[in-house]
Computed example of a mutant assay.
Amino acid sequence: MNRRHLLGLTAGALALPALTGARAQSFDRPVRIIVPFAPGGTSDILARLLAPDLTRGFGQNVVVENRTGAGGNIGADVVAKSPPDGHALLLIDVSTLATAPSLYTRLPFDLKRDLAPVTMLIYAPYILAVHPSVPARNAAELVAYAKANPQRVNVGHAGIGVGNHLTGLLVTQHWGADLTQVPYRGGAAALTAVAAGESQMIINGATATAPFCKQGTLRPIAVTGPARLADFPDVPTFQELGWPAADSGTWQGILAQGGTPAPMVNRLAGEIRTAMAVPATAERITALGAVNRVEGPDSFRTWLDNEIEVWGRVVRANNIKLD
Score class of each variant (00 low, 15 high):
residue 2 N to Q: 11
residue 5 H to Y: 12
residue 5 H to K: 15
residue 9 L to M: 15
residue 10 T to I: 15
residue 11 A to K: 08
residue 15 A to M: 12
residue 21 G to Y: 12
residue 21 G to L: 14
residue 23 R to V: 14
residue 27 F to L: 04
residue 27 F to I: 04
residue 27 F to T: 03
residue 27 F to M: 09
residue 28 D to G: 11
residue 30 P to E: 08
residue 30 P to N: 09
residue 33 I to T: 03
residue 35 V to K: 05
residue 35 V to W: 00
residue 41 G to Q: 01
residue 51 A to V: 01
residue 59 G to L: 05
residue 62 V to K: 04
residue 64 V to W: 05
residue 66 N to L: 08
residue 72 G to W: 03
residue 72 G to T: 06
residue 74 I to F: 13
residue 79 V to E: 04
residue 82 S to Y: 10
residue 83 P to S: 14
residue 84 P to N: 08
residue 86 G to H: 01
residue 88 A to L: 08
residue 88 A to E: 10
residue 89 L to K: 00
residue 91 L to S: 03
residue 92 I to P: 05
residue 95 S to I: 09
residue 108 P to H: 07
residue 109 F to C: 05
residue 109 F to A: 07
residue 109 F to K: 05
residue 110 D to L: 06
residue 111 L to A: 10
residue 113 R to L: 12
residue 118 V to Q: 07
residue 119 T to G: 03
residue 122 I to V: 11
residue 123 Y to C: 06
residue 126 Y to P: 00
residue 130 V to K: 00
residue 131 H to M: 09
residue 132 P to D: 10
residue 133 S to Y: 11
residue 134 V to G: 04
residue 142 L to Y: 04
residue 143 V to K: 15
residue 144 A to R: 14
residue 150 P to R: 11
residue 155 V to A: 08
residue 156 G to I: 10
residue 160 I to V: 14
residue 163 G to F: 12
residue 164 N to A: 11
residue 167 T to F: 02
residue 174 H to I: 04
residue 183 P to S: 01
residue 183 P to I: 02
residue 185 R to A: 15
residue 186 G to T: 00
residue 186 G to K: 01
residue 188 A to L: 06
residue 190 A to D: 06
residue 190 A to Y: 05
residue 192 T to C: 00
residue 199 S to F: 06
residue 205 G to R: 00
residue 208 A to V: 00
residue 220 P to M: 08
residue 227 A to I: 04
residue 236 P to C: 08
residue 237 T to V: 02
residue 242 G to I: 00
residue 243 W to V: 05
residue 246 A to S: 12
residue 247 D to W: 05
residue 254 I to N: 02
residue 267 R to Y: 04
residue 268 L to H: 08
residue 272 I to P: 00
residue 274 T to R: 15
residue 275 A to N: 00
residue 276 M to C: 11
residue 278 V to F: 10
residue 284 R to F: 08
residue 284 R to S: 13
residue 295 E to M: 13
residue 301 R to C: 04
residue 310 V to L: 07
residue 315 V to S: 07
residue 315 V to M: 06
residue 316 R to V: 10
residue 316 R to H: 12
